[in-house]
């Protein structure tokens, strides 16, 4: 009986201990979130109060509550989803286009030495042109519609994806490739079984910075001329002298950009769970 009791109690304490551990972990998380947001919340309050006291003139810097109201207003009249949708569509289309071209060219250059000698100098030269400089040319070629915008975003996405992919392929450990060779893998097997998985981390880094650039370029593309989209809201806000529209658009850019990066980060963590890293970024 005594033994049973002690067993029960030990189970209980064990259970309790693990629960306690979870609690500690959770409270650590909460602490992190609170600490990380404390300054922004204070700033928001100060801003709100100063705006209410009309220290900042409202036609220059409206209060946070007004900006939030603008977003909610846009959501209620339904136009918000259209703006978000079209902008996200442009980024994603440009992202897919840029990534596809980068993967094709990157594999050529990474796997065939001849292709490297042929293409790489040219690509490096193009890289030194600021991508936005292409805009007038694209508009001239494709007009001001979707194709020129998407191409432009694609150009922005292309470079980080391509560069990271090629450096990933070139950086694969010779020692691992030798293991493949000793096992008599042919070139195709070497690529699929060793080089691709080994360069995946670098490729995913490229995808993430490519996506970031995609969001930067969509702003530029929509500033050039658009009738819908978050970038169009920026122009609209400027032309109608309503800073709250501009701020609303900026906040939406930040939120959606962060969201898409977060999705890629999850994909990355899933695909690279085998990596032996000190910190997860």
């Amino acid at each position: 009986m005594e033994k049973l009791e002690s067993e029960v109690s030990s189970v209980l304490t064990k259970d309790y201990a693990s629960k306690r551990k979870q609690q500690i972990k959770r409270s650590k998380n909460v602490e992190n979130i609170v600490l990380g947001s404390i300054i922004s919340i204070i700033l928001l309050f100060v801003w709100e109060i100063l705006s209410r006291l009309e220290v900042f003139p409202s036609y220059m810097l409206p209060a946070p509550s007004v900006v939030l109201g603008t977003i909610i207003g846009l959501g209620q009249d339904g136009s918000l989803w259209g703006h978000i949708g079209i902008t996200t569509y442009r980024v994603l289309a440009g992202f897919v286009l840029g990534t596809a071209v980068a993967v094709v060219l990157g594999s050529f250059v990474g796997f065939y030495q001849k292709a490297e000698q042929l293409f790489d100098p040219m690509i490096q030269a193009f890289r030194s042109i600021p991508s936005l400089a292409w805009v007038p040319l694209f508009i001239l070629w494709m007009g001001i519609g979707e194709p020129s915008k998407i191409t432009m975003i694609g150009v922005g996405v292309f470079f980080p994806v391509y560069l990271n992919m090629v450096s990933g392929i070139f950086g694969v450990d010779r020692k691992l490739i030798e293991v493949g060779k000793i096992n008599k893998l042919n070139s195709f097997q070497l690529v699929t079984r060793i080089i691709l998985p080994a360069s995946l981390p670098s490729f995913l880094t490229g995808l993430r910075s490519g996506l970031g650039l995609g969001w930067m370029f969509v702003v530029a593309a929509e500033l050039m001329g658009a009738s819908q989209g978050l970038g169009y809201l920026l122009v609209l806000g400027q032309n109608t002298l309503s800073p709250e529209t501009i701020l609303a658009s900026i906040i939406l850019f930040a939120v959606i950009g962060k969201l898409t990066d977060w999705i890629l980060k999850i994909v990355e963590a899933r695909a690279l769970h085998w990596q032996d890293r000190l910190v997860k970024s």
Binding site: K175, L176, I182, N183, K184, R193, A198, W274
Partner: peptide, 28 residues
């Protein structure tokens, strides 16, 4: 050339970090 019948144990483990232990063993 590299011969089919040769097996090599390197001075370092040289495991593939993306494969499990079993998949590493069955690699060849």
């Amino acid at each position: 050339d590299i011969q089919e019948e040769v097996g090599f144990i390197f001075q370092e483990p040289r495991l593939f970090p993306w494969l499990t232990v079993l998949d590493n063993v069955t690699f060849g």
